[in-house]
Nucleic acid binder design. Sequence first.
DNA 1: TAGTATGATGTAAGCGCTTTCATTTATAGC
DNA 2: GCTATAAATGAAAGCGCTTACATCATACTA
Lengths: 335, 335
Amino acid sequence: MATIYQVSELAGVSLATVSRVMNNNVRVSEATRNKVLQAMEQLGYRPNSIAQSLASSRSNSIGILVSELHGPFYGEMLTGIEAEFRAAGKHVIIAAGHSERATEEDGIDFLRSRNCDALILHVEAVSDQFLVDLSKKETPFVLLNRQVPALADRCISLDNELGGYLAARHLLQQGHRHIGYIAGPMWKADARDRFHGHQRALAEYQLTADEALFFEGDFRETGGSKGLQALLASNRPFSAIVCANDEMASGALTAARELGYEVPADFSVMGFDNVNFAYYTYPKLSTIDYPVSAMGQMAARWVLKQVYQQNSIDVQQVFNPHLIPRDSVAEAAVT
Amino acid sequence: MATIYQVSELAGVSLATVSRVMNNNVRVSEATRNKVLQAMEQLGYRPNSIAQSLASSRSNSIGILVSELHGPFYGEMLTGIEAEFRAAGKHVIIAAGHSERATEEDGIDFLRSRNCDALILHVEAVSDQFLVDLSKKETPFVLLNRQVPALADRCISLDNELGGYLAARHLLQQGHRHIGYIAGPMWKADARDRFHGHQRALAEYQLTADEALFFEGDFRETGGSKGLQALLASNRPFSAIVCANDEMASGALTAARELGYEVPADFSVMGFDNVNFAYYTYPKLSTIDYPVSAMGQMAARWVLKQVYQQNSIDVQQVFNPHLIPRDSVAEAAVT
DNA sequence: TAGTATGATGTAAGCGCTTTCATTTATAGC
DNA sequence: GCTATAAATGAAAGCGCTTACATCATACTA
């Protein structure tokens, strides 16, 4: 592999000049620049990015920590992030945190030790305090899908409350008045926010959530099936249920079918997230779209702006979800 | 950030010694090692991986090029790869190739310019010749899910022929004798291989594939729905169809429902890949499992063995698919 | 025309490590 | 106690770049 030295020799200029034309920051005369470019071409020169990093103390790499690499959610996120950085000539190092505190902390450590210029973190298990402490260290980071009040300027998140509101309002507009709710783990902020939005929509119709029709699930399929069974067991009538995510909605759908109910004829089901498989369920799931790819992209832009000084970039920190009506919600039967 | 120099000073030894205890390759006396370790601890020292890379000319990074970062398939693959490398202290740089020749070549270039020690490539659009040429350059690579005869020792792939065989045999064993086939794009090797396996199974039953019941799809949902319509339009009777992947199977399922057919009562449907949503379709899709995470992991091991000389590792190059019977296939009605 | 900006280029000192080679120190054999 | 050998350590030369600073040529001012 040719080095900058050989290029400089062939072009008959100094190392510094070659470096300058590469980074085209300082002025180099047109003639010299061409000589250098030609020498590079001729030698098939490619700069050694490691050496560049060491000398300039920037690695042009961004560390990404997500909970999982598979699943319907994170892939979208990574897509948004990668595309943005790739276009900017930065590269992306990934690690998985598996929603466990130790693994997440370890992953952050791993990424930091890799000299990332910045981190994009989707973490669930580490404490706010840990993040606040981390913010005092040298490596800057953004948080995706998490709100830490003390770090508000580095958070990119969805308005979950609004999402919960939209889901409930959709049902209410279809005439439903008895609505069950299968929540996520209420220690998670997003689960709580979604439910709060739900309550707000109900309040607009002078309704309150019926406690007997509330079930706290786990954001997984089984949570949805258990939840449906619990709602059914309550013996309260309901014509619709909201699930706080699509996985649980899918579980509810399956359980409903197995118990002999038909959705949406017997009752409607709303999901949340609009993950890819929501389209493949039967009936196709009405849900709330989570613009995860756009949010990933925005996190990347945050980094480009804050860390690489691309000041012209605008950053949006809060995203709005929106309704995706499909087939799992129907009008309430007139009673 | 503390440097190796400060550690050496505090420990009262030379730079070289500190480096030795870090890499614990050469012998260092127990006493000295402890002094150094303690100094590191005290300073909170973390080696600068960039400097290490420059000096040792290995970056401990592996470039991964996949077609997409989202979708049900690649996430699994990345999970397998990342876990393996993380445990080995290597890190993973990712890029997306979007199944386009130019983007794939560009991605490879991008990764190479990042001084990756090795590449793991899931490429579909670049030519065999391009890969053969690439193999002559310095950066080693493995190919996932692709067979290039000249590069056989660097290919990790699925026995697609066997998969096609298993799918067809399953149907045959259930008594089906008139089986439609919705293929992938036949310019893709995996699409062809799957169909060949299909033919082999038929041959064992003294049958041949009915050309009128063959449709070349695109591996996407619409391919499945169009395919089903084409089969139906042929006016040939069939009691089952094989789709060359789950996306198309899902499309076929949806189309069937919309056209008033019931699966598997009216006809059975087989998928291929066992992507995550295959579990969420209705009816749940019978399919062929593609052990994609295990294959990703194996690609990582190949790298560990071939590039990082971890010789104790065993590498398996060809993986076998297996049948996942679920609800979309039923016994053929006796006629 | 001397004096001074100004732009273009060169010089050389790092960046924080690894690694070869030389040197010192310990171990053993006699 | 002395040499032969091995083990532990140190000195120093890079790895391939960036960048502060120095230098030189040219253009402009008065």
